[in-house]
């Protein structure tokens, strides 16, 4: 056996898979070739390190006897949707609406009793034509005892 053949059979030799004649030939080569001998001995030592402390299946069975099979993770409960909103939701919406109304009232005030001409003037001359103001003035002269709302409606109707 030469070095090339020896190295081709090295894995089988270290793993113990060579038959007797081949093993004998390999050992004979190792007697004569120091390099191959060193290589084989080093690999056998490495295999011994890896195989050290490998327990038997019986021992492993004993060590794991107390283990319990893992359980699947908990299933999340399905989210149940209510058909009707909660009372608290209704109260919240109502509060928002009231707040919006109160904000509007505090900002603009209640103008039902105010003079419409003032309101129209405040709203801007661009939205009220001069002609409309003239008619309102004329209606005031014609019906001095009428309410501001009546005079405004009359002015609009004449338009």
């Amino acid at each position: 056996m030469n070095c090339r053949t020896f190295r081709e059979q090295l894995a089988d030799l270290v793993a113990g898979e060579l038959d007797s004649p081949q093993r004998a030939a390999a050992h004979e080569h190792m007697q004569t070739c120091e390099q191959c001998r060193e290589l084989a001995r080093g690999l056998e030592a490495a295999a011994a390190v890896v195989e050290a402390d490998v327990v038997s299946l019986e021992e492993a069975e004993r060590q794991t006897a107390a283990l319990t099979p893992p359980k699947p993770h908990g299933v999340r409960p399905a989210i149940v949707r209510r058909r009707y909103p909660r009372l608290s939701t209704i109260v919240r919406y109502a509060a928002v609406i009231l707040l919006a109304f109160a904000s509007g009232y505090s900002a603009r005030g209640w103008r039902a009793d105010e003079d419409v001409s003032e309101a129209l003037a405040v709203d801007g001359a661009s939205r009220v034509s001069g002609e409309l103001v003239d008619r309102y003035t004329k209606a005031t002269e014609q019906f001095p005892n009428s309410s501001a709302l009546s005079r405004s409606l009359l002015a609009l109707a004449q338009r």
């Binding site: 402390d53 490998v54 069975e61 060590q63």
Partner: peptide, 24 residues
């Protein structure tokens, strides 16, 4: 599978870890 193969898995793990608790 756990009942039949746990010892085998432990054996591999112990051979690599060399520590009982880690192997478990």
């Amino acid at each position: 599978c756990f009942r039949t193969q746990r010892a085998r898995v432990y054996r591999w793990a112990y051979a690599m870890c060399r520590r009982h608790d880690d192997a478990l």
